[in-house]
């Protein structure tokens, strides 16, 4: 796959589409009666979707021996961070108007906010350490650190599950997908060949 750059560009454009759509809708006044709520829900949900998509890369790669998928993982992960952080930024600004006292109380007091915040912190650290240079410098520790993406995903799933009032259908669907990904992960103990692959991929 020599034209990987084009594929990456395509994926980049596709991944940006939800954000573009939201901005366009905001400009056109198409976000409904409560635009801020709409924005915060949409960005949060897209963050969760990209997070689960990122986690799906490794099992898919192993299942179909489609190693090229790995080349898209970081971009997907960064988009998960992008949407989740936008979600968080809207929470800080349009929801709480940077009333830090109120925000800290909210994070400390309300479990769904607490787990959401933990998830954001993890994703931020992972995004910062996603560059090749840092990755090389961290060596083996990088792999361990980046396994915490599973913690971030569980935070996101519970964040959603705990915030809904009565209709838990949608968060449960995401929770099931998350559990399946987790089960697949546990099942697939890395073989010698895969470990070599992983080691090789780190040099890419």
């Amino acid at each position: 796959m020599r034209n990987i750059v084009y594929w990456k560009l395509l994926l980049f454009a596709l991944s940006l589409l939800p954000a573009v759509a939201l901005v366009w809708m905001a400009l056109q006044n198409q976000l409904g009666a409560n635009p801020v709520e709409k924005l915060i829900h949409e960005t949060g949900e897209w963050g969760l979707r990209f997070l689960l998509l990122t986690l799906a890369i490794t099992p898919l790669r192993k299942k179909f021996s489609w190693n090229v998928l790995l080349k898209f993982r970081r971009m997907l992960g960064l988009f998960a961070f992008f949407y989740a952080f936008t979600h968080f930024a809207i929470y800080l600004s349009l929801e709480h108007f940077f009333d830090w006292q109120e925000i800290l109380k909210d994070i400390a007091k309300r479990p769904y906010v607490t787990v959401g915040f933990v998830g954001i912190v993890i994703l931020t650290v992972l995004a910062i350490t996603s560059f090749n240079g840092i990755r090389r410098r961290l060596g083996k520790r990088w792999v361990v650190l980046h396994r915490s993406v599973y913690v971030a995903a569980s935070c996101a799933v519970f964040h959603y599950l705990w915030l809904v009032k009565a209709d838990i259908l949608e968060p449960v669907i995401y929770a099931v997908i998350w559990l399946v990904l987790l089960a697949v992960r546990r099942q697939a103990k890395p073989t010698q060949q895969q470990s070599t692959l992983q080691a090789r991929s780190q040099q890419v």
Partner: peptide, 11 residues
């Protein structure tokens, strides 16, 4: 229990 009732957003 899950959110503040101090403020509200008027549509």
């Amino acid at each position: 229990p899950r959110w503040s009732q101090k403020r509200e957003r008027r549509l």
